[in-house]
Simulated scan of single mutants.
Amino acid sequence: MIVEIDGYFTQALLTGRKCSKKELKQKYLRALSIVNDIRDLPDVFCRLFRFEQLPFNDKIEVDFVIDTDTDYIYSPNY
C-alpha cells in the first residue's frame, strides 16, 4: 500500500504492508507522539512500522493520504 503524508512542511510517499484506515490512524498517532518536529514524521513512521520512503511524485495514485495539518486521513478518489 502507498500512503502520502501531506502537510505544510512535509510531503512524502511511504510504502508498506496493507492496513485499514483505523490501523493507519493508530500508527500515525503513535509516530506523531514520538516526533518533536513534524518534518521527522516520515522517517519515524518508516522506522516504527517497516515502511519505506519513495521519491515523491504527485502522479502516483495512493491508497491513503495523511494530512498532518488537520490530522485527517482519507482515501482519495481518482
Rank of each mutant, 00 (worst) to 15 (best):
N57I: 06
L48G: 12
N57W: 02
T15D: 11
E52C: 01
K27R: 13
Y28F: 15
A12T: 07
Q26A: 09
D43G: 11
C19F: 08
S75C: 13
A31N: 04
G16H: 10
P55Q: 09
F51V: 09
M1Q: 06
D71E: 15
T68A: 03
I34D: 04
F56Q: 04
P55G: 04
S33D: 06
I2Y: 10
I73M: 09
I5D: 07
T10A: 07
R39F: 07
K25W: 07
R39G: 09
K59R: 15
L32N: 10
I73A: 07
L41F: 08
Y72F: 15
V35L: 06
R39Y: 03
I2F: 10
Y74A: 10
L29G: 00
K22T: 14
I66K: 15
F9H: 07
L29Q: 13
N57P: 03
T70P: 04
I66G: 14
Y78W: 01
I2W: 06
R30V: 03
D63W: 02
T15F: 07
I60R: 05
D40M: 14
D43C: 07
F9G: 03
L54C: 12
I60N: 01
L24W: 04
V35T: 13
Q11M: 04
K22P: 00
T68W: 01
N36G: 13
Q26E: 10
G16L: 03
D67V: 13
G16F: 10
Q53F: 15
N57L: 07
D40L: 14
L14P: 06
K27G: 09
D6I: 04
Y72C: 07
T10C: 04
Q26S: 10
